[in-house]
Design a binder for these strands. Structure first.
Lengths: 294, 294
DNA sequence: ACTATATCATAAGTAAATCTAATGAAGGCT
DNA sequence: AGCCTTCATTAGATTTACTTATGATATAGT
């Protein structure tokens, strides 16, 4: 592989080592004449003789020694490069770099990695949890092959693959009055102490609209910018919230939270996978994408 | 000058720096198409894309970054080489490396350097004083451009340029009986305490033959392998000797030695300059050789 | 010293590569 | 959407690189 770059250097090095043009030519699969012409051309370009032809076996001139050193260094450096490149190629084929928002990454990645590992054992999945805008950035700047986001924004040079729409339910602490009910209708939420998302988060705007359209007024007791914190606050009894049910899985099992279905069919969180439009994904990444959305 | 080697690396580096194939092509005096084809060929050989074409300005891929690093290192190394080469070329044109036996070097080089310096001010003369066999070695191995020796041996791949034949005279200490005489004839030497050369030195064999042919028996009191030591021994009054007159110059002026002409026209020390037959001497060296033998 | 042998240099013709000019495709900006 | 710039592609021309054949030269062996 290192053979395809710096072939001139390799030839020179071989001539020096073999002390013979004809043998070096053989080693490089060319004729003796070609080797001679190569070296002569080189000498002409450098404007100085590199070999001492007056003696046999062929000896180096002072300038030749300098050039031989150059070739040695260059070839050594090229080998390092080739090794690094091979390693990179290999890992590029095998590793899938994923950037995900916290809520999806925390609740889904463990499962996905495990299940995908079974059908594609060679792959290595590297997950990075980021704020939503950083997920877009990571994908656009080729820091990640795939990005997991909610409420996808369509952008030029970004392909958005819709994954699913998550049902939103009421998240309450175990001692709340709703617990035990089959379902909650929007009106029931009126006046409830509510843990909301920060205003710049899209899901907050969606919920605000839902409350407005349902003519419900809630009492926001806290604003947080991520699901994880909201779940904590709810569990501590500060209020209730509305969250994608799937993101509560762990807390529901631990009985730290209770999820009560909410009659609001329009309230769903769309989740999607993004990747750069132009970039051709590695086989592993393509398989993974197929596997996830299947 | 660095431009004639590793042109591919330079092009790549320029493309990276300019973030543009067309501008890099201009910088390298080729068409945009040629630059594109170059990079594409490179990518094909490496089996991986180096540039990210899906965005403008052109960005590097991970592999491209690796290759750019390689190019940077190679070009830097090549620059060092070029600088070293230029320096070498320059000095090769200016410096004359001389290997000389002690007797010639000590007595003549100061004068030659000074006089030659006037007619060829650019030259730098490097003199190395060595035993005779080392002088041959130095010249044959291209450690020296010119070699100064006595009693030249003709060898294959060595050009011998006769310089002069030095008159040999009797070297005596100031209190010796010969001092004041116009001339000494061989017979006068009979029975004299004599400081001789070691037996392997050519000059010794020449003198032995001279004594034999003159039917003279001398009394060797000391054997030394170089003229310098013999002069010392004579000056200290251990005996007399026969030496090339010119090599005694300094001691004669200091009146530490006295030189008495010897009637022996055949007794002359030939001195010659040698150089490698094939090697073309630098202009400085050629001028110097001409100057010396003129 | 002379010849034999191996190796390098050179020449001429051919194959291969590289280059240019022209044109097509695509990104990014207004 | 349309314009402008830049890159990709193609085909043909030019240059370069290679091969084979032959000549020159250094070294070794007689």
């Amino acid at each position: 592989m290192a053979e395809v770059i710096f072939a001139d250097c390799k030839l020179f090095r071989d001539v020096v080592h073999a002390k013979s043009l004809s043998r070096a030519a053989q080693l490089n699969g060319i004729s003796q004449s070609a080797a001679t012409q190569h070296i002569q051309d080189l000498e002409k370009r450098l404007g100085i003789e590199l070999f001492d032809r007056s003696t046999r076996p062929l000896g180096l001139t002072t300038a030749g020694k300098l050039y031989a050193d150059l070739c040695r260094d260059v070839l050594r450096r090229a080998e390092d490069f080739t090794a690094a490149l091979e390693e990179m190629k290999d890992s590029a084929e095998r590793v899938i770099r994923i950037a995900s928002i916290y809520s999806i990454g925390l609740s889904e990645m463990g499962r996905l990695r495990e299940e995908f590992g079974k059908i594609f054992p060679g792959a290595a999945i590297h997950v990075q949890l980021l704020r939503p805008d950083k997920v877009y950035e990571a994908v656009l700047e080729d820091q990640a092959d795939l990005g997991f986001i909610s409420y996808p924004e369509h952008r030029r040079d970004l392909t958005v693959v819709p994954w699913r729409e998550e049902r939103m339910t009421v998240a309450a602490y175990p001692s709340h009055a709703f617990v035990g009910r089959e379902m909650v209708v929007p009106r029931d939420l009126h006046g409830e102490a509510f843990i909301a998302f920060d205003e710049e988060v899209i899901i907050r705007r969606e919920l605000d609209r839902f409350f407005r359209e349902s003519d419900v007024e809630i009492s926001i007791v806290m604003q947080l910018d991520n699901i994880q914190s909201i779940k904590e606050a709810v569990a501590l009894g500060s209020g209730i919230s509305i969250l994608p049910e799937r993101t509560m899985q762990a807390e529901l099992e631990q009985r730290r939270l209770v999820s009560i279905p909410l009659h609001a069919p329009e309230l769903r969180r769309p989740v999607a996978i993004i990747h750069r439009k132009k970039k051709k994904l590695s086989r592993a990444a393509r398989e993974f994408l197929q596997f996830v959305i299947a």
